[in-house]
Design a protein around this nucleic acid. Structure first.
Length: 723
RNA sequence: GGACCCAUAGCUCAACGGCAGAGCACCUCGUUUACAUCGAGGGGGUUAGAGGUUCAAAUCCUCUUGGGUCCACCA
C-alpha cells in the first residue's frame, strides 16, 4: 500500500472488474427481496453535469440494498430529449451556417440520430466514471423500437378511453423555435411595458359621442377583437350591456358582453376580447359563441385577415402601426407604464405567442385524481415529506397537457384523420386504411410527442416487453408465463430525482404509470436538491461558475466527489458546492486508506511471529471499541433505512476518523505486545466492516482496500447483516 | 394573489423534544508504528426577534422581520 491513495490507479480497473463479474446484473430471484430503481435517463445529447452526479443517492441505495442481500436492479437509459436535442442540434447547424430549413424531415432526423448516438456513448462512460452500479445489460433508449411501440400503445389506450383528444385551442407557441409547448415550458418574466387605453366609439364618425374605453398591453391584437366584456356586477357599464361599439381601424361592430372573469378593478373594467390570441378570451368566446379570427400567424406576422397595410408585418411593427393609426383617429385615450408578466419560451427566451392550433392533449383531471389517491393513501411515500404537499398541489392544478410538438426529433404521434369519416383514428402500426370506412383517404399528423410523454412511461416501458404491454391493452388475453422482470421489479422501489422536475416528470409518471398498469410506478419518491455554486447561485455557462464533474474526478477521484455531494447536506435542499468540499473528502478518503495501511502493516509484523500464542482476553480498550462500533452500526442502519444518507455518512466519518483513528489507534500504540495482537485482530474486523458500511458512498476506495486485505474477490462477499 | 422553504460560530452547513456540533478560516504547540491530504490544544454562539406548549425547545405552535424558490388567465 502506497502512503497516499491514488484514485486513478484503481477506479477504472475496479469498474471493469465489477462489469466483468456481472456484479450489477439483476435477475429474477424469488428467494430474494427485489429492490429496483430506474435511472432518470440523462439527455443523450450532452455531457453530464454536476446535477447528474447527484444520482449518487441512487447508487447509495442500490449498493446498500445489495449489501443487505436484496436482488437489486438499477436500470440505465438515455432520453432522446426531443425538443432539447433538436435545439442543441440547430445551434450546431448554425455554426456551420445552416438551419433546419435546409433539410427535409427524414434527412434532419437521421442527422440528429447520428449526432445523438455519438454523444450517448460519452454520457454512458461518464456514468461509469462516477462509479454507478448500473445494470448495463438492460440499458434502454427512449427511441428503441420496443419503447416507441409501447409509447404509441399507451397513446392509443388513452385515445380509446377518451383521455387523449385533438382540439383546436390556444396553445403556447414559440415562433422562433417553431413549436408549441405545454404550460410547464412557459416561463413567466416580469417585464416593463405599457398599458394603452383605447376608445371604441359608438359611432365611428363621431367619437366625441362617447363609447367604451378598453385597456390593453397588446394593441395589435385588437384587429382580431370579437367583443368587449365587462363584469356583470359592474354598475358603470350596466346600461351598455348588449349594445354595440365600433372596432376602430377595421370598422367592425363589437357587442358588449358580460363575463365573470373580468376584473372590474383592472384598467377601465372593460376588456377587449381577442379569442384567437389569448386563452382567457378564448374561454370567454366559447361561453358566448364568438367567432375566432386569427390575425397573427405561426411566423409571428399579421395574417391576411388584417387590413392590407398590416399583412406580413411582424407583431411589434404592427403594434406601432396600430398605435399611430389610433392616434390619428383620436382614439388613443392615454398610455401608462405597466409591469406585467409575459410568457416566454423556456429555451430561447422569446415571447410566447398564444395561437389557435389543432394540438393533441391529455385530459389530466381523471388521471390526476387517481394519482392523488395513491399519494394521499401513502401507496407512494415521499422523502423529504415536504414535497408531498407540493405534489398534491400540482395534481390539483394541472391543465390538460399539450403533447403535440411541431418538431422532427421525436416519436410521431400515431394519429390519422380520415377525410371521409371526418374524424381521427389512432393506430400504433402505420395504417393502410381507416378502420371505420375501410378507405385509405386519410392524413397522418406530422406532430411528435412531447418528450415527457415518453418519459412518463419510463418505469414500466423499460421493464416490459412489448408482448406484456399488449396484455394491458387487451386484458382478456390470458397468457400464462413465468415471472418476468416486470412482474418481479415493478412497481419499482424508489424513484430518485431532482425536485425541480416534480410536475414535469414525477407527477406524470404516476398518472400515466397507474393508467397503464393499474399500479403505482414506484413505491417511494426521494428528491434531491439542485447543485448551486459556492454563493448559492445557479451554475450557468454565462456566469462562468460551472464545475465539471469529470474534472473533479480527474483531480480528486470519483469517491471524493461523491462524498462531497452528500456529506453534511440536507436531502431535498439545494447544496452550495465548492471545490473545497471535494478536497475535504479527498482528505478523508486518504485518511481511510492510511488507517488501512496502518492496520495492514501491523498485520504483517504480527504474522511474522506466528509462535506468539493468542489468548483471547477482554482488554478494556477492546471492550470499549466493541461497544462503540456496535452503537455506530445500529445508528447507521437506522439512518440508512429512513433515507437519511447524509447523517449516516457523517456518523461513519466521525467514527472512522475521530474514534477509530484518533482514539483507538493512538491508544493501541500504548498497549503491551500480547494485548496489542489481541486488539488488532478485532480492530481489523471492525475496520473491514466499516469499509462495507462506507462502500455505498465511496465504492472505489473501499473495494480497493478490501482487495488488498483479502487478496481476491469483492467486498460484496460480505453482507451488512453479518457486519 | 397563492404556496413552499430558509435564518445556528467569520464562511458553508449538521444537529429532527434531552449537555449547541463539524469542515474551512484563525491562534498555540507538535515529524512518535499509518496519514502534513496529519496530530494535540485554543478562541469564537442569548440558535433573526417576540410570545406560547413542555420537567426540558435551535427543534413543536402563533406572530413579526429579513432572504430564497415555485406557481397563477390582472387584459
Amino acid at each position: 500500500m502506497e502512503p497516499k491513495y491514488q484514485p486513478h490507479l484503481y477506479e477504472e480497473k475496479i469498474y471493469q472488474f465489477w462489469e466483468k463479474n456481472k456484479l450489477f446484473e439483476a435477475k429474477v430471484d424469488q428467494k430474494k427481496k427485489p429492490f429496483s430503481i430506474i435511472l432518470p435517463p440523462p439527455n443523450a445529447n450532452a455531457d453530464l453535469h454536476l446535477g447528474h452526479a447527484m444520482y449518487v443517492y441512487e447508487d447509495i441505495m442500490i449498493r446498500f440494498h445489495k449489501l443487505l442481500g436484496d436482488e437489486v436492479l438499477w436500470l440505465p437509459g438515455a432520453d432522446h430529449a426531443g425538443f432539447e436535442t433538436q435545439y442543441v442540434f440547430e445551434k450546431h447547424l448554425k455554426k456551420q451556417g445552416k438551419s433546419r430549413f435546409d433539410f427535409d424531415d427524414e434527412t434532419l432526423y437521421q442527422m440528429i440520430w447520428d449526432f445523438v448516438q455519438n454523444n450517448r456513448k460519452n454520457m454512458e462512460n461518464q456514468l461509469r466514471k462516477l462509479g454507478f452500479a448500473l445494470d448495463w445489460s438492460k440499458k434502454k433508449f427512449t427511441l428503441d423500437e420496443d419503447i416507441v411501440q409501447i409509447v404509441k400503445q399507451t397513446f392509443k389506450k388513452l385515445f380509446d378511453e377518451g383521455l387523449a383528444y385533438c382540439d383546436k385551442a390556444i396553445v403556447n407557441y414559440c415562433v422562433n423555435c417553431g413549436t408549441s409547448f405545454s404550460d410547464l415550458e412557459v416561463v413567466y418574466q416580469e417585464k416593463k411595458g405599457k398599458l394603452w387605453y383605447i376608445l371604441y366609439p359608438f359611432d365611428r364618425m363621431h367619437p366625441e359621442k362617447g363609447g367604451i374605453t378598453v385597456a390593453t398591453t397588446r394593441p395589435e391584437t385588437m384587429l382580431g377583437d370579437m367583443a368587449v366584456a365587462v363584469h356583470p356586477k359592474d354598475k358603470r357599464y350596466k346600461n351598455l350591456i348588449g349594445k354595440a361599439v365600433n372596432l376602430p381601424i377595421v370598422n367592425r361592430g363589437l357587442k358588449i358582453i358580460v363575463d365573470e372573469v373580468v376584473d372590474p378593478k383592472f384598467g377601465t373594467g372593460a376588456v377587449k376580447v381577442t379569442p384567437a390570441h389569448d386563452s382567457t378570451d378564448w374561454e370567454i368566446a366559447k361561453r358566448h359563441n364568438l367567432e375566432l379570427r386569427q390575425v397573427i400567424d405561426t411566423d409571428g406576422r399579421m395574417t391576411i385577415l388584417t387590413p392590407q397595410e398590416f399583412q406580413g408585418k411582424k407583431v411589434l411593427e404592427a403594434r406601432e402601426l396600430v398605435l399611430q393609426k389610433l392616434k390619428e383617429l383620436g382614439l388613443l385615450v392615454k398610455e401608462e407604464k405597466h409591469t406585467h408578466r409575459v410568457g416566454t419560451c423556456y429555451k430561447c427566451g422569446c415571447v410566447i405567442e398564444p395561437l389557435p392550433m389543432e394540438n393533441w392533449f391529455i385530459k389530466t383531471k381523471p388521471l390526476a385524481k387517481k394519482a392523488k389517491e395513491l399519494i394521499v393513501r401513502e401507496k407512494i411515500k415521499i422523502y423529504p415529506k415536504k414535497f408531498k404537499k407540493i405534489l398534491l398541489w400540482w395534481l390539483d392544478h394541472f391543465h390538460d397537457w399539450n403533447i403535440s410538438r411541431q418538431i422532427v426529433w421525436g416519436i410521431k404521434i400515431p394519429a390519422h384523420y380520415c377525410n371521409i369519416c371526418k374524424k381521427w383514428f389512432v393506430s400504433s402500426e402505420s395504417p393502410k386504411k381507416c378502420p371505420s370506412c375501410q378507405e385509405n383517404n386519410f392524413l397522418s399528423t406530422n406532430n411528435t410527442f412531447d418528450t415527457w410523454f415518453s418519459s412518463a412511461q419510463w418505469p414500466f416501458a423499460t421493464l416490459m416487453t412489448q408482448k406484456e404491454n399488449s396484455k394491458f391493452q387487451s386484458p382478456n388475453s390470458k397468457e400464462e408465463s413465468k415471472k418476468t422482470l416486470f412482474d418481479y421489479f415493478y412497481p419499482t422501489t424508489v424513484m430518485e430525482t431532482g425536485y425541480d422536475i416534480l410536475p414535469w416528470w414525477v407527477a406524470r409518471m404516476i398518472m400515466i404509470g397507474y393508467f397503464v398498469t393499474k399500479k403505482p410506478p414506484f413505491l417511494n419518491i426521494v428528491l434531491h436538491g439542485l447543485v448551486r455554486d459556492k454563493k448559492g447561485q445557479k451554475m450557468s455557462k454565462s456566469k462562468g461558475n460551472v464545475i465539471n464533474p469529470m474534472e473533479m474526478i480527474e483531480k480528486y477521484g470519483a469517491d471524493a466527489l461523491r462524498l462531497a455531494l452528500v456529506y453534511e447536506t440536507t436531502l431535498g435542499a439545494d447544496i452550495n458546492f465548492a471545490e473545497e468540499r471535494v478536497i475535504g473528502m479527498r482528505n478523508f478518503i486518504n485518511k481511510l486508506w492510511n488507517i488501512g495501511r496502518f492496520i495492514y502493516l501491523n498485520k504483517k509484523l504480527k504474522t511474522q511471529d506466528s509462535k506468539v500464542k493468542i489468548e483471547l482476553k477482554k482488554i478494556p480498550l477492546l471492550v470499549k471499541l466493541e461497544k462503540d462500533f456496535k452503537e455506530t452500526k445500529r445508528k447507521y442502519l437506522r439512518l440508512m433505512k429512513s433515507y437519511r444518507f447524509s447523517p449516516a455518512l457523517v456518523l461513519l466519518h466521525n467514527f472512522l476518523w475521530h474514534r477509530l483513528a484518533d482514539f483507538y489507534i493512538e491508544e493501541s500504540k500504548k498497549l503491551e505486545e500480547n494485548d496489542k495482537i489481541n486488539f488488532f485482530i478485532r480492530l481489523e474486523e471492525v475496520y473491514l466492516n466499516c469499509l462495507v458500511m462506507l462502500h455505498p458512498y465511496a465504492p472505489f476506495v473501499t473495494e480497493a482496500i478490501w482487495q488488498v486485505f483479502k487478496k481476491e474477490g469483492s467486498i460484496y462477499e460480505k453482507n451488512l447483516i453479518s457486519v
